[in-house]
Design a binder for these strands. Structure first.
Lengths: 198, 198
DNA sequence: ATGCTAGTGCAACATCCGTCGCATTAATAG
DNA sequence: CTATTAATGCGACGGATGTTGCACTAGCAT
């Protein structure tokens, strides 16, 4: 017996699909600036009130777009070397930040205005870091880096400069940065920077 | 002969001071959320239009608060070791992000909405990184790290994880992170991660 | 089919946000 | 002191942003 109050029927799902499609389309055509509840509702052929009631604000819309995307098929790169994996990962991050439609960029911007978007962003990054731990495990298996290397700290060291450069400093894209940051993290890991006992 | 159109007289300066004080007070009492042009104007005893004309938006106000602060007296820490300097620097960054009133945090949030705030932020960070280059020079002088070590890349490697943790991931404050990130950067620098010729 | 009701459409409303034209004030030059 | 003219005050406006009450539509159970 399902919850009698729930009603995930055809119309609800259909409207959700219409609205989320409208968000993606609007994002692709006019970017994050013109992404307002009104615009999305009009494009989806849905009344403003419906969007406000179900999603609350723009951040809620983006968060739902992200959850709906549910990119559960994503896997971290596997190039055969730690440096190759990290560099490829950083390239993906850099590409995602410049991507059209700029979903990633929009989500980050929205996370400063909406709690829902901030949560979606936290969930996304947490998920990604967990999935990427296999990169470190493989490197340990290849004896590239010492056993006991902390995966999370290594991954943050490798990727943080890319985010810092593009999101915070908003500096022009630096093609060498992904590989450079990856190389730095590898050298630090080899030197034992991420092993527990000092 | 000064420019006859300029008029930096008493009233202009007085109103600027009133408005900037109001921004700081409002920020301290109610945070960044309730920091609107209207609120600030009312608190400063100034008309809304005046604020809109001179500062444009909330980002402009924050940018001017920052410029007015003009912390030209700031100097990077000098502890006697590269690791000590970087760890102290990261501690300062972490403290600035938790500081009350949250000027730094507000400036970052505003930089996603206002071009003026984004510029102020860029200027601030650029200035800080340039000033911090002396940390790397001193370390080279002490023969802690190889000559030719790129200051900027070393500094970004050391500080980016702190920003990433607090601003993007919005994770709870990690007291060990400043020292850890500093240690990582030192190890990478010693291993030659930031020297030009490979 | 029929009734129930979650979900939606609709319109009116209250704010907030930013801009504009014009009157007024006050800093500066002479 | 007087004239000039930035800078400010003021009110009104147009548009965007959310909210609310009510009617209605369409899933779902029976």
């Amino acid at each position: 017996m399902t919850n009698p109050t729930a009603r995930p029927g055809g119309r609800t799902a259909r409207i959700r699909a219409q609205v989320l499609d409208a968000v993606r389309a609007e994002l692709a055509e006019h970017g994050y600036d013109s992404l307002t509840v009104d615009t999305v509702a009009a494009r989806a052929g849905v009344h403003r009130t419906t969007v406000y009631r179900r999603w609350g604000d723009v951040g809620g819309l983006l968060a739902d777009v992200y959850d709906a995307a549910g990119d559960d098929d994503w896997e971290p790169p596997d190039t055969g070397s730690l440096h190759g994996d990290l560099a490829a990962l950083n390239e993906e991050i850099q590409a995602a930040m410049v991507m059209r439609p700029p979903i990633m960029e929009a989500l980050i911007a929205a996370s400063f205005r909406s709690e829902a978007a901030a949560d979606a962003q936290r969930r996304l990054w947490e998920d990604r870091y967990v999935r990427c731990e296999v990169i470190v495990e493989r490197a340990i298996g290849r004896a590239e880096i010492p056993p006991g290397t902390g995966a999370r700290r290594l991954l943050v060291t490798a990727t943080a400069p890319v985010y810092h450069h593009l999101v915070l400093l908003r500096a022009p894209l630096d093609p060498a940065l992904p590989a450079d940051a990856a190389r730095t993290a590898v050298l630090a890991a080899v030197a034992g920077a991420f092993t527990e006992g000092s």
